[in-house]
């Protein structure tokens, strides 16, 4: 009916044995057991170590999307404001930084974070699948929120979206809006198409879900939620960030679609 669960031998093989070893070749030596694991090893690849990487990179994403969403709101100020903003992003820090320098720093950081984030996510995903190779015939999830249960597929959806989004608005490889002279035109002429707005809206909602659980989850992973109160606060923070990001990102496309900005 279903796949055989592994026998006992499976985990003896996989167990790391952090045991003080007998030294003189005899089997039973009176040694005092203490947890004397070399301090450096293991923790990074440990499930918690991976989670810490995810939390760290996730928080970088949070910072980025908050700023990005704020930046997008400049569209409401009209063409000049937005184009100036886009230009300013590239001249920021000059002459210490070359033209577009900040942007490249951000890109490197984001890309590195993404690699770490995705690596950790997929590694843990794999481990979790291996941890229950035979599924339940009936399983209820009573305490899990929707956002917590959709982290993995939601994350993949976000990844796909980001690739699309970069091809769309950064590299202009995909241009349903046609070649446009300025960043402002690019945005405005994109979002008067309902289906592009829909894609973006779905992505933003996925992002809101991901962050709603993600912010609370990162706090827990970083070990900041040691009491019931702090746990409740982290959950509220998650909902707040999720809602904020969703609203901020959705305003410009909707404003454009409904002709409030043009």
């Amino acid at each position: 009916m279903s796949r055989l669960p592994a026998g006992r031998e499976k985990f003896t093989r996989r167990t790391a044995a952090p045991v003080t070893q007998a030294t003189d070749g005899e089997r039973y030596v009176a040694i005092v057991a203490t947890s004397t694991l070399p301090a450096s090893q293991q923790a990074v690849r440990s499930s918690i170590g991976l989670k810490l990487l995810m939390a760290g990179s996730g928080l970088i994403f949070v910072g980025y999307v908050l700023l990005h969403a704020y930046g997008n709101l400049m569209v409401l100020g009209g063409a000049d404001t937005f184009n100036n903003y886009a230009h300013h992003l590239r001249t920021f820090g000059q002459p210490m930084l070359p033209y577009g320098g900040l942007l490249w720093i951000v890109r490197v950081v984001l890309l590195a974070s993404l690699v770490l984030h995705a690596y950790s996510a997929f590694t843990l995903w794999g481990r979790a699948n291996g941890a229950r190779s035979t599924k339940y015939a009936v399983k209820k999830n009573v305490a899990a929120s929707l956002s917590s249960r959709t982290m993995r597929f939601g994350g993949v959806a976000l990844l796909l979206f980001v690739i699309f989004h970069i091809l769309h608005l950064t590299t202009h490889t995909i241009t349903p809006q046609g070649k446009q002279p300025t960043p402002y035109d690019n945005v405005v002429n994109s979002f008067d198409k309902w289906w592009l707005v829909l894609i973006y809206a779905l992505a933003v909602i996925a992002l809101a879900f991901h962050l709603t659980h993600g912010v609370w989850s990162a706090s827990q992973t970083l070990g900041l939620t040691n009491t019931a109160t702090s746990r409740a606060r982290a959950k509220i923070a998650g909902h707040f960030v999720g809602a904020l990001v969703a609203t901020a990102f959705l305003i410009p496309p909707l404003a454009i679609l409904f002709g409030i900005v043009d």
């Binding site: 996989r14 203490t34 440990s46 499930s47 989670k51 305490a143 917590s148 249960r149």
Partner: peptide, 29 residues
Amino acid sequence: ERAMRVQAMVATHDGAGFGGCTNIGECSH
């Protein structure tokens, strides 16, 4: 033994084939 304890326990936990935690909360429930 606090620092040693947590590292050794987590290593054994992972080695035993348990999954990682994504803070879903079914466990506590």
